[in-house]
Design a binder for these strands. Structure first.
Lengths: 249, 249
DNA sequence: CGACATGTTGAACCTCATCAACCGACGTGG
DNA sequence: CCACGTCGGTTGATGAGGTTCAACATGTCG
C-alpha cells in the first residue's frame, strides 16, 4: 500500500494545485480546501495499471492531475468496451454508490489526487457548491456519453476513427495552445494505443490500424510514427468524422 | 399553444400526484410543492409527437407521469440513434443548459407534468435536496448510458434485441406486479415499434424483426401478435442477452 | 374498399471481424 | 554482443453478421 508512488499532501498543497480552479475543488473555500488537503494523497499510476476494479467496494475518489484514464466495461466472455475517457481535471469515481460500476485503467502515466470516499461524500453533503459542481461534471459526462452512443451505434469505422483523432486533436490544441480550428497544422502524440482506441470505438485493433492508414493515404491526417500524428486541417477531419452535423454542436 | 391537451395544475395537484415520492419532487416540502403546483402544467403528447427539438432553447423541464419518451440524436444525413428512454417517474430535460442536446419524442401516448426552466432552476438553487435528487437521477442515467455503450459497441444483434426485451420485461414486471425473475410466464405489450427498437439498438428495422423471429423460434420469447410478447423464463432471456456477466450487476 | 403504416421475409451485397503472417523497437539474459 | 521473446503495429485473405433493396403480409382508419 505505502509505496513511493504515494505522497501525502502538505496541508498547503491544494492551495497551489495546478488544477485547483478547474477541478471540483474549485468550489471549496480555503478552510475546506485545507480539510481536503489533510485527507488527500497524490498517487502515480503507470501505463496500463488498474486504478479501480469493477464490482469492488468504493474506497476513494480522485481528481486526475495529469494523464488519461480509461473507464471500461467487461463481460464474462472477455469483450471490453471503454465507456469513458478522463483527462485532467476530471473527477474519477462514482459518487453515492458502494461499488464501482466499471474498471478504471491508466491509459498512460497518470497522476491523481485521491481522498477517502466517505470523507468526500460528507464534504459534499455539507458543501452545496461542491455537490453542484459534481452535478455539473456529471451532466457533461452524460452529454459526452450520449454523443458517444451515436458514434457507437451509427458511425462507420472511418468516421469513428476520424472522430477520435479529432477529439484528441482539438483537446490537445485546447491544452497546448496549438493553432485553432482549420488553420495551420496541428501535431501531437496519441495518448492511446491502437488497442485503447479499438476499445473505445467498438472496433478491433486491425480495423483501427487500417482506417488510420486510409486516412493517412487520403491526406486527412499524416502518420509520422506509430504514435505521432499531424492534422493538416482540422475541419477536413471533422468533415470525414461526420461531425459538423448534430445541430452544430 | 393553449389546446385541450394542456391542463393547469390545481394548487393541490402535486400533493396527490401518483409519482410524487418517486419523482424529483419527492425532495420538496409541502410549501415548495405548492409553489411548483402553481407553475406546473399537465400536458399530453400522443404517439410520435415531438416534445423537445435538438438545438432549441431550453424552455421547460418535465416529469414523466406516464408513457415512454425517446431521446434521439440525429445527424445531418438522417441517421438516428436513441440515446435514452424515459419512463415514469423520470425527469425530462437537460438542467443548466440553454439548448436541448437531443430530440425528445413520445414513444407512445405520454403524460408529463412540465414547468418553466428558470423557475425550476431557481428552486434547485435554493433547495439542496432537490438538486441532490436531480444529481442522483443523473448519475443513474449515466450508469445506464454506459451500460448501453457496451451494448452498442460489443453485443451481437441477437443479444441486443434480447437485452431490450429483457429490460422492458423486467421493468414491466416491476411496475405491473407480474411474477418475478425466472418464475412463471410474463406477458406484456412492447411500448415500442420495431423502428423505435432499431433506433435504440443501433440496428435496422429488418434486423430487429429477424432477431425477434429467431428468439421466437428458439422459444426464448413467444410472439403473440406484433406487439404482444410473452417471456416464459426471464433468466433464459437474460442469458441470451449476455446479461448475467458484468460483475453480477 | 383502398390507402397507409407497421411488420415479415428473401436475396445480394458490403463492412468489419477473424485468423494469420510479418515488421520494427525494445529489453533481457546467455 | 547477439539471440530471443515480447509488445505494438501493419497488412492480407477469408468469411460472418448486418445492411440494403425489394416484395409481401397484416392491420387500421377514413
Amino acid at each position: 500500500m505505502d509505496d513511493y508512488n504515494v505522497v501525502k499532501l502538505q496541508s498547503s498543497a491544494c492551495a497551489t494545485c495546478a488544477i485547483r480552479h478547474r477541478a471540483v475543488c474549485g468550489a471549496l473555500k480555503d478552510r475546506e480546501l485545507a480539510t481536503l488537503s489533510r485527507m488527500g494523497r497524490f498517487k502515480r499510476y503507470s501505463t496500463g495499471e488498474m486504478i479501480l476494479a469493477d464490482g469492488e467496494p468504493t474506497t476513494f475518489f480522485a481528481n486526475i492531475v495529469s494523464g488519461v484514464v480509461r473507464l471500461d466495461k467487461t463481460s464474462a466472455d472477455g469483450r471490453q468496451q471503454t465507456v469513458g475517457l478522463l483527462f485532467a481535471p476530471d473527477f474519477l469515481g462514482r459518487a453515492y454508490a458502494d461499488h464501482n460500476p466499471y474498471f478504471a485503467h491508466a491509459a498512460c502515466d497518470v497522476m491523481v489526487c485521491q481522498f477517502p470516499h466517505e470523507a468526500f461524500e460528507r464534504l459534499m453533503h455539507h458543501n452545496n457548491g461542491l455537490e453542484h459542481r459534481m452535478f455539473q461534471k456529471t451532466l457533461n459526462e452524460l452529454d459526452a456519453a450520449r454523443d458517444w452512443m451515436f458514434l457507437l451505434g451509427r458511425k462507420t469505422a472511418k468516421e469513428k476513427v476520424a472522430t477520435l483523432v479529432h477529439m484528441i486533436a482539438s483537446r490537445h490544441s485546447h491544452i497546448g495552445c496549438t493553432p485553432q480550428i482549420g488553420l495551420h497544422e496541428a501535431q501531437f502524440q496519441l495518448p492511446l494505443t491502437r488497442a485503447d482506441m479499438a476499445m473505445f470505438l467498438g472496433l478491433t485493433i486491425e480495423t483501427v490500424s487500417r482506417q488510420l492508414s486510409a486516412l493517412n493515404k487520403a491526406g486527412t491526417i499524416r502518420l509520422i510514427s506509430g504514435r505521432e500524428v499531424a492534422v493538416p486541417d482540422l475541419s477536413t477531419l471533422a468533415l470525414t468524422a461526420g461531425l459538423d452535423d448534430i445541430a452544430a454542436a
